[in-house]
Design a protein around this nucleic acid. Structure first.
Length: 784
DNA sequence: CAGCCATATCTTTTT
DNA sequence: GATATGGCTG
């Protein structure tokens, strides 16, 4: 029987089918089980037509899984349930109706890169200096505005007399016009336009209200204001809105997620039922306790207490290393050992970290240990140059109004159409208020050299040929025409480098994805393919079947679980991030803590937390102390060890302390700090046992991907190693975590020390003065 | 117009 | 350290 496998709370949630329902589901409490069973119950017991059920998830992968699991529970019909992400739901709706609000149904979707390209054009047009106002920051203001459903006009009003904000509002307006002209929507627009559509056309809204009588939203804590509006509109007729989430796992504030949505659900829907799922089925006792001990330090959260009836299991392993290199090495060897022992398989192990950049060194070490791995995040397949180029061709064929795509490919491969020509065409387009592509077609009206004009006509013609094949020939054939016809592939083949070969592989990979799409879809269209491609997340490609160690950011790990988890880089300044520590807004730190909670609760039976005394960040050596979150875990459940502190031998000898003559010689070339610290720091560290690495210990931070380990002499000869540089500062006799005294600010605790090249930049938390960044040379800090 | 070299800035996290 | 940008030269 359907309900037999559920606990009381879960069963209650499944049976509560009518009206608004909030399910507060702690980590690992069987949330997905509840949703799938609820859907099955609606269909099997309540006789609801699957067609009337909508489930919104966070990723495509989650959507696929949900459909699969419902499929196992109900005999048939699961395929007509609408299961998808917010973004793809909106796209589906907009593809049908967006013409009602003045767009063409063939709109293209812009990713972050495209947005930036548009922004650059606008900066040119409005004569804005990108050094004064960064495109990125304007885009982020625009994004937040969209998430809050603030229009350019409203933003202008809000800006009042503030010149800077007026400027941003003006850019926002221009940006929207540009997108409209290109018949393009950015990610945020997908939601905004869907809501606009519903508000503008009550008949269309009603049509969808009738269809989606039962709506379920997963990961509700990560919804933003537009998303909330979107589901509210849909649910406003039948009010069968079931949201599932955990306020403790809200980690997408930076993307506009509004934690109030879940905290205030009962205020918005006073008649709502609330059910708490507090039994955790995933983690062993110690892991769960650690998670609870961390999260209870947050002030704004719903009261709940996760418990388990599982055994305590191992304590949390806590390991400190000298360098990130040692950390990675230790993790790799631990995985190798445990797999060899038969404790775990590769795919049961995951390395989680705060920032994508941390994956490099882990990757390198896993390669040397011959451990299969896969990295998620970082550069998405669809963001690679070659893939974006080909997609831009396809977009141009599909929607020539998309200026961004046209401009991207007009000179790829090189056709001899340069910047000057492009500027002329753009000017012509602006003047006649036509698209870039239309301007290209009127090349003879412009003052452009015949040779170049002919090249342009050739380009236009080739696009025209590809387009004429649409509908007549399979999409894959058009694809192949493009890569052959333009000479794109041939150019790469001639290059004959490893990089070029990888590019070709990626293009082939894209082709096979198109082939898949064509085979699977009933009515394959170019727009359809492009849209599918625009909305995939990296995590969507995660397969449980293949045996590899998984590397990903904590953000991407949400919703997943692994028997053996390594949580690395647990250092104050890295995690919690430096930004969140120094920010005036304490909620930033709370969000980091939630992130930590998410990380810990990914682990099922073994959790290893690691951190390093020193780490290379953006080409600078950073010295950090252990994360404050680790200190929130009771020592009773920690098994703590420091590794490598005794390995001091040879440091001084193998590098050699340099004198000032050598410094002068070196100053002609860029003396990067790549080879560790200057003499004074080395001495300071040396005396404090902070640093104990040996020479080869550094090769990790020097060699990139694919460079296998080098011997010490090879390193020296390769030029990768630069000699140490004498610092003008006196040696530092304090380290992160120490109390120091400042003449003005009094006593404070050192948070981090960054090697700024000429001097050390010391961040100190002062009692009464807050956080200050000081230069060691001037600050004259005294250890107390 | 394209290719080369020097420089500046970067990083939190992503649909 | 890596990548995007800008200036210069052939």
């Amino acid at each position: 029987m359907l309900l037999d496998t559920l606990n009381d709370r879960q069963r209650e949630a499944v049976l509560c089918t009518e009206g608004p329902l909030l399910i507060l589901a702690g980590a690992g409490s069987g949330k997905t089980r509840v949703i799938t069973h609820r859907i099955a119950y609606l269909i099997e017991e309540k006789g609801i037509n699957p067609w009337n059920i909508m489930a919104i998830t966070f990723t495509n992968k989650a959507a696929g899984e949900m459909r699969e699991r419902v499929d196992e529970l109900v005999g048939f019909g699961s395929e007509s349930i609408w299961v998808s992400t917010f973004h793809s739901s909106c796209v589906k709706i907009l593809r049908r109706h967006i013409d009602k609000i003045g767009y063409d149904n063939h709109f293209t979707i812009y990713d972050t890169d495209d947005q930036k390209t548009v922004m650059k054009e606008i900066y040119k047009k409005l004569n804005i200096d990108s050094k004064q106002l960064k495109e990125r920051s304007v885009l982020s203001v625009i994004s937040s505005a969209k998430n809050e459903m603030i229009s350019p006009e409203q933003l202008k009003k809000q800006a009042g007399e503030n010149y800077g904000q007026q400027k941003i509002a003006k850019i926002y307006k221009e940006y929207q016009e540009q997108l409209h002209k290109n018949n393009a929507l950015d990610f945020d627009d997908l939601l905004v336009k869907a809501v606009e559509l519903f508000e503008a056309c009550p008949d269309i809204l009603e049509q969808y209200q009738e269809r989606f009588r039962y709506i379920m939203v997963d990961e509700y804590q990560d919804t933003n204001t537009v998303q909330f509006r979107f589901v509210s509109l849909l649910a406003s007729k039948y009010k069968n809105l079931c949201v599932v989430g955990d306020d403790d796992q809200s980690i997408y504030k930076f993307r506009g997620a509004n934690i109030e949505n879940i905290l205030n659900y009962e205020k918005v829907f006073p008649e709502a039922n609330v059910i708490k799922l507090e039994q955790n089925y995933r983690s062993k006792g110690n892991i769960l306790n650690a998670a609870n001990q961390v999260i209870r330090n947050n002030t704004t959260r719903k009261d709940k207490a996760l418990w388990t009836d599982k055994e305590d299991g191992d304590k949390i392993h806590l390991r400190q290393y000298n360098t990130a290199y040692d950390e990675a090495e230790a993790i790799a060897s631990d995985i190798a050992r445990r797999v060899e022992n038969g404790e775990y398989t590769y795919k049961q192990c995951a390395c989680l970290y705060r920032t994508n950049a941390q994956s490099r060194m882990l990757e390198e070490k896993l390669i040397t240990w011959n451990i299969p791995y896969k990295i998620f995040g970082g550069i998405n397949f669809y963001q690679r140059k070659e893939v974006k180029d080909i997609l831009a061709y396809l977009k141009t064929v599909d929607n020539a109004r998309d200026d961004v795509a046209v401009k991207r490919i007009i000179n790829i491969p090189k056709r001899g159409i340069g910047q000057t020509t492009l500027d002329k065409v753009q000017a012509f387009a602006n003047q006649h208020e036509i698209t870039f592509y239309e301007a290209l077609m009127r090349v003879e009206e412009m003052d452009i050299a015949t040779r170049t004009a002919n090249k342009i006509r050739e380009f236009i013609n080739s696009i025209r040929v590809y387009r004429s094949k649409l509908g007549e020939f399979p999409l894959t054939e058009i694809f192949e025409d493009i890569i052959e016809g333009t000479g794109y592939k041939r150019e790469l083949e001639l290059e004959d480098t490893d990089e070029a070969r990888t590019r070709i592989e990626n293009i082939d990979e894209l082709l096979s994805k198109l082939t898949d799409y064509q085979n699977v879809t009933e009515e394959p269209t170019l727009s359809g393919f492009l849209e599918e491609v625009a909305l995939v997340a990296d995590i969507d490609s995660y397969e449980e079947n293949s045996d590899y160690v998984v590397l990903m950011t904590i953000h991407s790990s949400k919703g997943l679980e692994f028997p053996n988890v390594y949580l690395c880089g647990m250092e104050d300044g890295l995690f919690p991030s430096y930004m969140s520590i120094t920010d005036d807004d304490p909620t930033e730190l709370e969000e980091e803590r939630r992130l930590c909670y998410v990380a810990i609760t990914r682990a099922m039976d073994n959790l290893t937390v690691t951190y390093a005394r020193s780490r290379m960040v953006r080409g600078e050596m950073q010295y950090n102390k252990v994360s404050r979150f680790v200190k929130e875990i009771s020592p009773m459940i920690l098994d703590a060890k420091e590794e490598g502190t005794m390995n001091l031998g040879g440091f001084g000898k193998s590098i050699g302390f340099t004198n000032s003559t050598e410094e002068k010689q070196d100053s002609s070339q860029t003396v990067k700090r790549s080879y560790g610290m200057g003499t004074s720091a080395a001495r300071a560290a040396f005396s404090r046992n902070i640093y104990g690495g040996n020479l080869t210990g550094y090769s990790g931070s020097l060699g990139g991907f694919g460079k296998k380990s080098m011997s010490a002499s090879e390193l020296m000869n390769s030029g990768a190693v630069k000699k140490g540089v004498e610092k003008s500062s006196a040696s530092l006799d304090y380290a992160p975590g120490d109390k120091v005294k400042h003449i003005k600010f009094g006593v404070g605790e050192v948070i981090s020390i960054v090697d700024g090249g000429r001097d050390y930049e010391v961040t100190v938390q002062f009692e009464g003065y807050g956080i200050k960044k000081l230069f060691a040379q001037f600050a004259k800090l005294k250890k107390v």
